[in-house]
Design a protein around this nucleic acid. Structure first.
Lengths: 222, 222
DNA sequence: GAATAAAAAACGGACGTTCATTTTTATTTA
DNA sequence: TAAATAAAAATGAACGTCCGTTTTTTATTC
């Protein structure tokens, strides 16, 4: 038999990785055996080792491919944001993150597997230096907004945007994977509004703001 | 040999559970064998089964005991908050959550194990109806603040407080378990300030606020 | 010596991986 | 075009190890 075309190989690997991913997600990495994978992928046990050297490498291959998909989705999400801290854009970010979390919830389960079984070796890059990355993507918009005086004095846009991004992420992850079922006491739509408003306008009235700032703001610089 | 006192039994179980917890955290539940546990606890393999019926039940026992500890810590944290949305109190909440996460990071790893291997069966209660619980704890303070006019119009204190609590939690978890290393581009102290300010004052200047509200606020009620 | 705890041995089964063998199929040959 | 070829792909039994649990044996205390 001549060598399979690389497209054919990729096809077969896709079948295997799809099966493995479904199993890893349903029952964890260590609880999934190579036999389980071979059965679900309808590939013989031994043949798995023609495509992967070890069980670990199947996991790594899944992650690698998935990371590039998520990367693309995120790039698309950020691409359609032209005014990062403007409320309606912020809300749109939240909606996009919601779709990302709900549409790829298996991916985030893989991340938890990675945290537990590989000390998050494969996913570290998702959060490492994330604020700097946002600064690179939106740096111009951030400084423009600052120049226009859109931002409260002392507010650095980059960590704020990161915080908003993380907040949306966490909200949907808790809802999807941790059994939050409306843990904010609101439906998704209302929750998005609530979170967006917080980031844009805060929660205190002007009166309370002035009052609190007067008494307790000496230690709050930064 | 006379029956061990229940205190002595508890002592031996503690040794076993400490060992098991350390191993579960370091290498996951399925990757940890009963032999591993017996070795680390310096208890014979067979003897483990005099204290627990199954490996699962060791995990459950660890969770049960830990949940009560965390519950007490949380109760103490909330007890010393007298003005939930006042900035310095909010920051204090963040500091407490930080200590909770960093001081008991193993507990949160167990939660991820639970998500992956037990569909979060044991931890669901941590997030389910959390906003209602805050409403019960702080309900009076919330309405008082509202009456005083401390809150921006349309702001419901309970979900906001929940969101702040979750945000702090998520921040420290990412830092501790996901390799965030200063993912907001700030040290912990600065990050707490930043997050607190967001929740209290928002990020937009009064000028931008007025402008954005005028154009895009029709769809943002809730 | 009766009762209990602890330790050790044993069990059947499942694990990740290897490997000798069989099957497949693109290319070469007729 | 059809048969032959040869290299790659696919197979599944087998290997040694480790698994969770059970059973048996030994030690300890009254």
């Amino acid at each position: 038999m001549p060598k399979l075309s690389s497209a054919a190989i990729r096809e077969r690997k896709d079948v295997i990785e799809d099966a493995a991913r479904e199993l890893f997600i349903k029952q964890g990495f260590h609880a999934t055996s190579m036999r389980d994978i071979s059965k679900r992928a309808e590939v013989s046990l031994g043949n798995l080792y023609n495509y992967y050297t070890t069980k670990d490498s199947i996991f790594e291959s899944i992650i690698d491919r998935y990371l590039t998909v998520i990367d693309e989705v995120l790039r698309a999400i950020f691409a359609e944001i032209d005014e990062p801290l403007e409320p309606s854009n912020l809300r749109k970010l939240g909606e996009s993150v919601g779709r990302l979390v709900n549409g790829h919830s298996d991916f985030w389960l893989l991340m938890y597997i990675d945290v537990l079984e590989f000390q998050n070796r494969h996913f570290r890059k998702m959060f490492d230096g994330i604020t700097d990355r946002f600064r690179k993507i939106f740096g111009e918009r951030f400084t423009e907004a600052e120049k226009r005086g859109d931002l409260r004095t002392g507010v650095d846009a980059a960590p704020v945007f990161t915080a908003a991004y993380m907040q949306f992420f966490n909200y949907f992850l808790v809802e999807k994977l941790f059994g939050g079922n409306q843990h904010l006491g609101l439906n998704d739509d209302q929750a998005l509004n609530c979170l967006t408003k917080i980031f844009a306008y805060g929660t205190l009235s002007d009166k309370a703001m002035a009052q609190f700032k007067k008494t307790a703001n000496r230690s709050m610089v930064g």
